[in-house]
Amino acid sequence: MTAVVTNAPAPPVARRRTYLSYVGSKVLGAFGSLCFVLVLNFFLFRVLPGDPARTLGRGRFRTEAQLEAFRHTYGLDQSLPHQFVTYVGNTLTGHLGVSLRYRVPVSELISERLGTTLLLVGSSTILAMVIGVYIGMIGAWNRGGPFDRFSTGSTLTLYSMPEWWLGLILIAVFAVGIGPFPGLFPTGGLHSLDVDPNSLQGWIDTAWHLTLPVLTLTLAFLAEYSLVMRSSLLDELGEDYLTTARAKGLRDVDVRRRHAARNALLPTTTLSAISLGYVVSGAITIETVFSIPGLGLLAQEALSIPDYWVLQGTFLVAAAGVILANLIANLLYGVLDPRVRS
């Protein structure tokens, strides 16, 4: 027998510190990105061509005095560094400016509508993730079979459709109704006018209103998850450690579940956390098509005015969402895959 290899095992404390320093570096990185977005958000709207006062005023101001008054109200007559300091200070204290259209603080508008968008995009993402991963898994296990060919073809078709177009088709079929079939769902909005949104009936009513938009987004997101899961599982299925697991006498079901599917879920985790970050962008078209009062519709309306501070606010929230989701993805990945920690 050979001598015992003297290789001191890493003490658990050191290993915990490895994960903590991993978390620390990721949090620091996310904080850095957030600061960058904060700065970018300020200058992005300042480098736009034209005079903000004239653009915003759109001919409403007849005299120089009116323009000056407008500039003074919004602090545009101050120097750029001064404006920047004010902007950073206000943003950090939660003041995002006042909407030109609604005449209420932007932060109030956003917090009012964020929940709706999170409900819409969040539930579609979760549905798409669960169904997509499942489809991808079954497809990979029966690669080239009828299910695999059908699912790959149909998810790709759905993926290539513009989501607003898919939404319109669904409205035409299920909300308006075709021929003898009556419409089953409302064509838009979030609540019926005669129902109290804070009652049980109101909840059911909201769910009924959200069915079609959630269905549309789920179908649109589905392909990404199923294709990523399918290809990463196919990669895993060729790995040697699955042969080891089979040689150990595990049932095929256990080999797939404990070893292959578990490891194939890693890329899918990243994807889902990142797409959760695209809450606003994903919602713009769908909220417009279904007239759902969420962040997307808010941004779309703000663009057409243009409601300068609302745009700046939604941009900031959208960017913060992406950064936060990335951070969550990184931390989750660190838990799931021991290799990235070291």
């Binding site: 040697d240 042969t243 080891t244 006498g249 799931l336 290799r339």
Partner: peptide, 23 residues
């Protein structure tokens, strides 16, 4: 067959990095 695998005969695979589950 499953009962025979590993309990009756086992295999030391080549390239143990790939033959062990990384996670």
């Amino acid at each position: 067959l499953r009962a025979l695998r590993w309990a009756g005969a086992s295999i030391v695979f080549q390239g143990a990095l790939h033959s062990l589950n990384p996670v």
